[in-house]
Amino acid sequence: MSIVPRTGLRLRFLSDPGEFLAVAGDHLGADPVVSTVVTTIAHRQLSQQAEGIPQPDRDWWLVISDDSGAVVGAGMRSAPYAPYPPFLLPMPDEAAVALAHALHERGEEVLAVNGALPAVDLCAAALAQRGGGEVRVNRHTRLHQLGELTPPPPAPGSLVTATVDDARLATEWLAAFMGDADEQAGRPRGASAHEAPDHAEVLRRIHAGRLWFWLDETGEPVHLTGANPPSFGVARLGPVYTPPAQRGRGWASNAVAEVSRRIQAEGTQVCLFTDQANPTSNKIYAALGFRPVVDMANLVIVR
């Protein structure tokens, strides 16, 4: 489905991630770090399609073109958790507003918007104006890219790749991750409306070799770091989780540094998100050599 607002921009909604990547691939690949969330999920859904896993009918992929046909923005609605917020990459201001009007005309209920600023601000404000409600910030995040890795002070132990035998522990820790992150940022547990990966998703990550534990000197797991498979030459780290009793001992810094070193050795760029309300994690990543790329936000519309 295509919509041409009065701005001259063309908004094209696609149901197939493969078609989306074919149409917007050059645009996404021109800034693969900023595009990491969208490209990672598009490639993941392609893999799931090949396995016969159906995608929800509500999902869509968005390509925004100017009057010359050049792609100037992109986004998606593929979140597996309510209220299924769209995720927007950088786009012209008028495109973000036009998207809000298009969603209203399509009859889609949108009660949250995630992604790059200022697009999400403009889109959420226009949605609230059309449908009523007040825009509130759920979380401010910042995307960082690793330049030259600065090794941290060494900590006892070593990094190991998670195996199927670790699936139960990994599932428990990933379930605790978002709640603990909310508390560390001064929010109530559960304020960030993200659904923890289920056991099947954890097994998928393990089979892909994208989960690692840091083991202390006794061989006990004390930290978990994950990463997405590379997309357009970029791998995004996350989650990064240390149980409360093990924090402050350097496990996270050493695990993230070693995972990052291995990924960079493959010729892949490394990036990750931080919560701007969590000064501890921001300080750790800055010390390792991560530098800010773009600010993003998770916004909700309260009616």
Rank of each mutant, 00 (worst) to 15 (best):
A100T: 09
A102H: 03
A102I: 13
L103I: 07
L103W: 12
H104A: 11
E105Y: 03
R106M: 11
G107D: 13
G107V: 15
E108V: 15
E109Q: 05
V110H: 05
V110R: 03
A112R: 15
A112S: 15
V113E: 04
V113P: 00
N114R: 02
G115Y: 01
G115D: 05
A116K: 11
L117C: 08
L117T: 15
P118Q: 06
A119S: 15
V120T: 01
V120F: 03
D121M: 09
L122C: 11
L122I: 10
C123E: 05
C123G: 01
A124V: 15
A124H: 10
A126P: 00
A126E: 14
L127W: 12
L127Y: 12
Q129C: 04
R130D: 09
R130I: 14
R130H: 11
G131F: 03
G131E: 06
G132F: 04
G133A: 10
G133M: 05
R136M: 03
R136W: 01
V137S: 03
N138K: 11
N138Y: 03
R139V: 15
H140Y: 08
H140C: 05
H140N: 08
T141H: 03
R142N: 08
R142D: 10
Q145V: 09
L146A: 09
L146Y: 09
G147Y: 07
G147F: 03
L149N: 13
P151G: 13
P151F: 07
P151N: 10
P152Q: 10
P152E: 11
P154I: 10
P154A: 05
P154E: 08
P154Y: 02
P156K: 02
G157S: 09
G157F: 07
G157W: 01
S158T: 12
L159M: 14
L159Y: 07
V160S: 13
T161M: 09
A162Q: 02
A162L: 13
T163M: 04
T163D: 09
T163W: 03
T163A: 05
V164E: 04
V164D: 01
D165S: 02
